[in-house]
Amino acid sequence: MTNALNLNAPVDTLAMEYTRDFDAPVAALYRAHAEPERVKQWLGPRGLTMDITEWNFKSHGGYRYRHSDEHGHYEFNGTFHTVRENEFILQTFEFDGAPDMVNLEYLWFEDLGDGRSRLRGRSICPNVEARDALLSSGMEGGMTEGYEKLDDLLKNL
């Protein structure tokens, strides 16, 4: 069973909010976000390879990674501001192709019982134009594909 991504981006706001349920315990979902070898298996759309050059997953830590395909590469970086195991991540997110357009991202991990969990997120963009650019870039399709890959990973944990 594939659970649907619910992405909401109200007009004229800086925020995008989403939820996605998973058929896995919250601890497994959290580990898939915390451990770089697992992150590499699911983050991003199909057809991209991922190289992580920095992954210091703790409060006040940072990350840097690169997605690549036949068209080139796309680099991203950020800071993990707050990390609470199995509960919450607050981080920044920046695409090197759009410098100074840093998003603030909140991730909440919710236990739904019966071995199921929910990821709830909010991304705050620096301006409406940056938010609209993300939405028009195919971000929703990339998130959907990434979470489908995450479903496959979680089945094997």
Score class of each variant (00 low, 15 high):
Arg118Gln: 13
Asn156Glu: 15
Tyr30Trp: 10
Asp151Arg: 09
Gly138Asn: 12
Arg84Ser: 08
Tyr106Gly: 02
Gly141Ala: 11
Gly62Phe: 03
Arg84Gly: 05
Met139Tyr: 13
Phe93Lys: 10
Thr13Met: 08
Glu75Ser: 06
Leu48Phe: 15
His81Phe: 02
Pro99Ile: 01
Glu54Ala: 14
Ser59Lys: 00
Asp69Lys: 06
Glu94Tyr: 06
Gly44Asp: 00
Leu104Cys: 09
Ile89Gln: 03
Cys125Asp: 15
Leu29Ala: 04
Phe57Leu: 04
Leu29Gln: 00
Ser68Ile: 06
Glu110Lys: 13
Gly115Pro: 03
Phe76Cys: 09
Glu70Cys: 07
Ala9Glu: 02
Leu153Cys: 03
Ala4Leu: 08
Arg120Pro: 00
Leu90Trp: 06
Ser117Cys: 02
Gly141Lys: 10
Leu48Ser: 00
Asn8Gln: 12
Phe88Cys: 11
Lys149Met: 07
Leu48Lys: 05
Leu90Met: 07
Pro126Ser: 11
Ser117Asn: 02
Asn3Cys: 03
Leu134Val: 06
Glu94Asp: 04
Tyr18Pro: 01
Val83Asn: 01
Leu43Thr: 10
Leu104Glu: 03
Pro99Gly: 01
Ala27Met: 02
Glu145Tyr: 03
Ala130Cys: 13
Ala98Met: 15
Val11Glu: 12
Arg84Trp: 01
Asn6Cys: 08
Phe88Asn: 06
Asp114Ser: 13
Ala24Ile: 13
Arg38Val: 01
Pro126Cys: 12
Leu5Met: 15
Leu5Gln: 05
His81Tyr: 09
Val102Lys: 13
Leu7Ser: 11
His73Ala: 15
Val26Met: 02
Arg116Gln: 14
Gln41Val: 08
Glu140Gly: 03
Gly121Glu: 04
Asp12Ser: 09
Leu48Ile: 05
Asn77Ser: 15
Tyr106Ile: 11
Ala130Met: 12
Leu7Cys: 10
Gly142His: 10
Tyr30Ser: 02
Phe93Arg: 03
Ala27His: 10
Pro45Arg: 14
Asn77Leu: 15
Leu135Ile: 09
Met143Gly: 07
His71Gly: 02
Ala27Thr: 12
Leu43Gly: 01
Ile52Met: 07
Ile124Phe: 08
Gln91Gly: 03
Leu14Lys: 07
Asn77Trp: 09
Arg120Leu: 06
Pro25Leu: 14
Glu35Phe: 05
Lys149Leu: 08
Asp111Pro: 00
Asp21Thr: 03
Val128Cys: 08
Pro36Gln: 14
Phe76Met: 11
Glu85Pro: 02
Arg46Trp: 09
Ala24Lys: 02
Leu5Asp: 01
Gly115Val: 10
Thr92Leu: 07
Tyr106Asn: 08
His60Lys: 14
His33Tyr: 13
Ala27Leu: 08
Ala15Glu: 14
Val11Thr: 11
Ser68Pro: 04
Ala133Glu: 08
Ile52Glu: 08
Leu90Ile: 04
Glu129Thr: 07
Tyr18Gly: 07
Phe109Gln: 00
Thr2Cys: 04
Asp132Trp: 05
Asn156Cys: 14
Asp23Ala: 11
Met143Lys: 04
Met101Thr: 08
Asp111Lys: 00
Glu140Val: 11
Thr53Glu: 12
Leu104Ala: 09
Asp12Arg: 12
Pro25Cys: 09
Ala15Cys: 05
Leu112Tyr: 01
Thr19Gln: 09
Ala34Trp: 06
Thr82Asn: 04
Leu119His: 00
Arg120Thr: 13
